[in-house]
Every structure is written in structure tokens, then in C-alpha cells.
Amino acid sequence: MNDTTFVLTLAASVAAAVPIALAALGELLSERSGVLNLGVEGMMLIGAVTAFQAGDASGNLWVALAVGAAAGAVFSLIHAFLCVTLRANQIVSGLALVIFGTGVSTFIGKSIEGEPLDTDFVPTRWGALADLPLVGPVLFDQDPMMYITIVLAAVIAFYLNRTRAGLALRAVGESPATADSVGVAVALQRYVHVMIGGLLAGAGGAYLVLGQVPAWSQDGTTAGVGWIALALVVFASWKPMRVLLGAFLFGFARRANFWLQGEGVDIPAEFLSMLPYLLTIIVLVVWGSRDLQRRVGAPAALGIPYIRDER
């Protein structure tokens, strides 16, 4: 076994986990409020292309990231308006977001297709720790976003389980009528968390161009990461720390082919690019059955618009 390739693959997996985790944590918050947003891929594309443009113009990494995240949040506002205010079908609206996001990003990205970006994240070396075998390159030679992501997952877990606001959010996703009756602003909660979802998906998209491949490519930049994130939320039973763990797993799956090829195992690239969509299909099967949803821990009101019973 080629140790170096394996360690490098692991280190790359951890980096690959970052955009998946960011997008999935955002989607988790949105879904915990009861709004399913299938538009993650679209929001990531918007985040990526705007971050590229902003990075190109400003030369500042953090500005680029903030612009990508903000663009994702603004874009998700469409979904929030359609699903919360107009009570549209969330699946249809989410899919529309993907298609719209693809179109808009193609348009914005026309001039930069294939161009390189000089602004990108560089790994922080934690001194001697980075020289440790295996854990050194995997944990102590990564860019800041990886550490931010891990902290974020912990913060979200704490927010959901231990704070009054988190309790209110969970109540909105489980039983909006109950939450409404005790004075929780259901629509506001949903707007806020759908937009945090957009913000994180946008940040995830931004990271794809800022931290992984510093170039914009319509077909290659997201390559289904949004769909993986969506599936991950379900596989993680809507729990933030499990999302983080799952993201590392999926990150490894996305990078494993380098190592496997070195080992002489040849998995066709087509198969790997199929994976996100395959996972999504499995997840949609889960969604098909209310009963199964309940058992895997889906918020009880997920996907259901809230209509206040006036009389």
C-alpha cells in the first residue's frame, strides 16, 4: 500500500468535506424549520460564481467568501417567499431554484469560464503538529475554513439542543401550529432558517472556487455537491454532528479514486459522477414514505406549508 498517496487522499478528503458540510448544515437548519430546499445545488452555483467574480475584483479572500454567501442567502429568499408566504410546493420550488441557479450562474460566469483565480485559501501549518505522521497533514495542515466548519457544526448542535431559540426552531419544524399558539413567529423562523441555509450553501459554493479548484467551470465546479449535501442531511438524521461526520465520509468517497487508482483499482469516473444523483434518488425514496420519514427522524412538518387555522 502506498502510504503517501493514502495520507494525501485523506487530507484532500477532509478539504473536500468542507463544502459538503457547509451546504448540508445550512440545509439542516432549513429543514429543521420545516422547509425542504432542494435548490442547494443552485444556491452553491450562485455562491461559487459570485465569489469568483468578487475574488477577481477585490483580490480579498474573505470578501469573496462573504459575497458568495450573501448571494446564496439572497437567492434562497426566492424559495422562502414561494414556500412560506405563497405556500408553494417546496419540491417544485426547490427544483426551480436549481434550474434558475444554473441559468444565472452560466450567464454571470460566461466571461470567466476556464479562467484561473489567484485568490484562494492556503493551508495553515500548525508548526510541529503538522509534521506528525497521518494526523499532521490530515488535521493540522488545512485551511481555516475546515476549522470554521467544525466549530460551526458544534455551534449549530448546541443551538438546536440547548438554547431557547433552538427549541422554538425545532417546534416550528415539528408542529408549527403548536409553536404559533405559544407565540413563536413561524413564518419569521422559516424565513430566517431558509436564508441561513442559502448563506451556508453560498459559502460552500464559494469555497469550491476559493479553496479547491481556483477556477470557474459551469459543469465542474459543483459537480453534484449540492445533491450530496441534500442526501447527507437525511442520512445524518437531521443531526449536525452526524452531518459533519458524514461529510468527511462523502469527502473521502469523492477523493478515494486517486488513491484507488494508485492501488490498481479502477472505478470509472462516470460512476463517481453518478453518485450524487444516485444518493438523491435513494433519499427521495425515503421522502416518498411519511412513515419512513418519521422513523429516520425527519421533522414532522417537513415540506408542509403552514396555514394558520383562523377559526
Binding site: 431557547r164 433552538g166 427549541l167 417546534a171 415539528e174 408542529s175 403548536t178 409553536a179 407565540g183
Partner: peptide, 21 residues
């Protein structure tokens, strides 16, 4: 809320509860 415990239901929406439940 079906999936909440009795205690969680009782403090839901209570403005006098501390920030940290």
C-alpha cells in the same frame, strides 16, 4: 409537540426561560 418531552413542551415559548434552556 409530539416529539418533545413533557418538560420541553412546558418551556416552549415561555419568555421567562433563560437563554440557555
Amino acid at each position: 409537540v409530539d416529539r418533545f418531552t413533557v418538560a420541553e413542551n412546558i418551556i416552549l415559548g415561555d419568555p421567562t426561560q433563560p437563554w440557555l434552556i
